[in-house]
Amino acid sequence: MNIIEVQNEIVEEFSLFEDWMQRYEYMIELGKSIELIDPSNKVDSNLIKGCQSKLWLHAELNDDKLIFKADSEAIITKGIAAVLLRVFSNQTPKNIIEANLEFIDKIGLKEHLSPTRANGLLSMIKQIKYYALAFNKN
């Protein structure tokens, strides 16, 4: 699936929820099922700044695609990371750079995008885009 297809799929899943509680419960579930970062990559250089809980993000290139893995001490942060990884992991750097982020608003997570919110969502997106820029060969 390309990025737009994944985003649409996530938006559709979230549209089934009637209130914030169901949305958060789902995010917490996603957080629990996230494919965890290798412990050897849980190093300070992979820490995302601006988060009240520790949040690690690791990237590596597999053929032409970027594979992201993440972990956090906080389960909601982990859930947010899981949503982002579903969108951006296993995509080419070029597609990641070009991806827009409207789906975040559509799934009701916009409040987490404010730079003053201490959850690191914005920093995490920035970091994902930086990796994509760094690995982009074109």
Partner: peptide, 13 residues
């Protein structure tokens, strides 16, 4: 073992 950030986020809701 819950993280304070998680608890605070839900309480805010």
């Amino acid at each position: 073992e819950l993280h304070s950030y998680d608890i605070g986020t839900i309480l805010d809701k």
